[in-house]
């Protein structure tokens, strides 16, 4: 292997203080410039893993490497310049405008912790334009529609100019149009030498847009690979315990149609 993988997770284990074992011995690596989907049932450890990657939580054991360097000895500010984060929920903050919200993404770069420079401003204006929210810049963030808010939050993560962007359930409140819109923007960003790890429940959407899919269940890595190879009816049955048909439409695009919940299989061996 010549190229250093952008993100390498080595034997990541995370046990919370209350004893909940969220991630069990997860290892994988992803190359630079890919859109990577993270799929798994609720509570399977996706969010915990993402939080370990940007050191929001400390892993119980294991190591995270970005560009071949471990993030563990890095300061939070250094990590913030490498990894940005689009949280699943944005707390409404007393009417910060779109411009101010996106400007907050420049925080890890602020020289004197106080004033933004002309360069910061130009990056923000540029990004507002890129994400089609330029005309909204003076509006309060919490007055925008969910789709527009999501774009603004992605723009905010983008101005952080990271190597890796973590996106947690970006399309959960959005209609079809905005779902596609968000995925297209994520896809466009990876062309700018950015790698994106996106956790999402819509498997069809993930299969269509992602270069790679990571499948998790109960804190363990089940599979990683190209969506069309990884996502199968057997896999859906094992991971979600539902019957689903996985098919291809006329354009050869994969889709997943959940059909019925059949309950846990009788012969299931608990993943303890």
């Amino acid at each position: 292997m010549d190229e250093v993988p952008l993100l390498e997770v080595r034997h990541l284990d995370k046990v919370y203080e209350n004893g909940y074992h969220a991630d069990r011995d997860i290892s994988f690596s992803i190359p630079s410039g890919k859109l990577v989907g993270l799929i798994g049932p609720n509570g399977c450890g996706k969010t915990t893993m993402m939080r370990c990657i940007n050191k929001m939580h400390m892993p119980t054991s294991g190591d995270i490497l970005i560009d071949g360097e471990s993030v563990m000895p890095k300061t939070p500010a250094e990590v913030a310049r490498l990894v940005s984060n689009v949280p699943a929920e944005m707390t409404a903050s007393f009417g910060l405008t779109v411009f101010e919200t996106v400007m907050l993404g420049r925080y890890p770069y602020l020289q004197n912790m106080w004033w933004e420079t002309e360069e910061d401003e130009s990056i923000v204006v540029d990004t507002l334009k890129k994400f089609g929210v330029y005309h909204l810049q003076d509006r309060a963030l919490n007055m925008l529609s969910s789709g527009e808010q999501q774009r603004v939050l992605i723009a905010k993560a983008y101005v952080q100019n990271p190597r890796l962007m973590l996106v947690d359930e970006p399309t959960s409140h959005l209609d079809m149009k905005y779902k596609l819109d968000v995925m297209e923007y994520l896809r466009a960003m990876i062309k700018q030498d950015m790698t994106i790890l996106v956790a999402e429940h819509d498997i069809s959407l993930m299969a269509r847009y992602c270069d790679l899919c990571i499948i998790m269940k109960k804190g363990q890595l089940i599979a990683i690979g190209e969506p069309k190879k990884v996502i199968t009816e057997e896999l859906i049955r094992e991971v979600y315990e539902v019957e689903a048909s996985v098919g291809f439409d006329r354009d050869g695009e994969i889709y997943v149609l959940p059909k019925r919940y059949k309950g846990p299989p009788e012969d299931e061996v608990p993943l303890e």
Binding site: D25, S27, F28, I222
Partner: peptide, 8 residues
Amino acid sequence: LRGIPFSC
């Protein structure tokens, strides 16, 4: 692939 580093 379980448990071993995978590279794509």
